[in-house]
């Protein structure tokens, strides 16, 4: 091994060995930085970061990948969800009406791998595209207009968008929503919730910073100490 693995380096394009010069450093965050991806290849991780950041770009608040969404999707694909938990996969498979829902013969992890591969075939260099061009590609994909062979591009888009949104706003225990990026953005205080004396105080902003399921006192400078919960 020539150098320790770094997810951050992968996402920043620092480990990219393709001929293209370094991508602009927009995908800096990787919470599990020293661990190899559980599911994604490095190429897939870079493409996914570019895709997620088109959906939730950086502004005053972090982008999707800056909030750990690539880590989130990687873990989801490697876990029960990616492997078809809660999905009836008995054939035969037929194309249905939209009202009949998902009918592809692919597990979510297969859809992710297949979709990224076909995206690269359809639009090579996707991860390094200029923003405007990439926006156009994603728009076409979302409308089912991107040619991805027999894979409907909107089905792949729907899956990636669903997971990106989930990763940005789910509890940080799943690898996304790093430092409560999503929760801070909207003002959601998290998993601890006793509002009996507050709910009818109208138009008063709730003062507490977010706390997740695994929140540790002192884990973040401005956060209050988590109350000790007594068993009922």
């Amino acid at each position: 091994m020539t150098h320790p693995f770094s997810r951050r380096a992968v996402l920043l394009g620092l480990a990219a060995t393709s001929g293209v010069a370094l991508a602009k450093p927009q995908h800096a965050f990787a919470a599990l930085d020293d661990q190899p991806f559980a599911f994604l290849t490095e190429t897939e991780a870079r493409m996914l970061a570019a895709l997620c950041d088109t959906l939730i770009p950086e502004d005053e608040y972090p982008s999707a990948s800056q909030a750990g969404v690539v880590d989130f999707i990687d873990l989801q694909m490697a876990g029960p969800y990616g492997n078809g938990e809660g999905l009836y996969m008995k054939g035969p498979f037929f194309e249905g009406k939209p009202s009949q829902g998902y009918q592809l013969p692919l597990l979510p992890s297969e859809l992710m791998r297949e979709g990224l591969s076909r995206l690269e075939q359809a639009e090579s260099g996707f991860a390094l595209m200029e923003d405007a061009r990439r926006n156009d590609v994603v728009t076409a994909m979302s409308e089912g207009e991107l040619d991805m062979g027999d894979l409907p591009s909107d089905a792949f888009f729907d899956e990636v968008w669903k997971l990106t949104n989930q990763g940005f706003f789910a509890d940080p225990i799943y690898g996304g929503n790093e430092n409560y990026a999503g929760w801070r953005m909207v003002g959601f205080p998290g998993a601890h919730a006793y509002y009996q004396s507050f709910v009818d105080k109208h138009n008063v902003a709730y003062p507490k910073a977010p706390m997740g399921i695994n929140h540790q006192p002192g884990g973040d400078g401005d956060l209050p100490v988590a109350p000790v919960r007594k068993e009922p």
Binding site: Y81, G84, E85, G86, L87, Y88, M89, Q166, F169, A170, D171, I173, Y174, G190, A191, H192, A193, M211, G212, I213, H215, R229, E231, P232
Partner: peptide, 22 residues
């Protein structure tokens, strides 16, 4: 029990308390 129950992804969107349609 809270806080574990207050997990939107697990219970609200992965339907962990519901029928598994697998």
């Amino acid at each position: 029990g809270a806080p574990e129950e207050h997990d939107e992804l697990k219970y609200g969107l992965r339907y962990t308390h519901m029928m598994n349609v697998r």
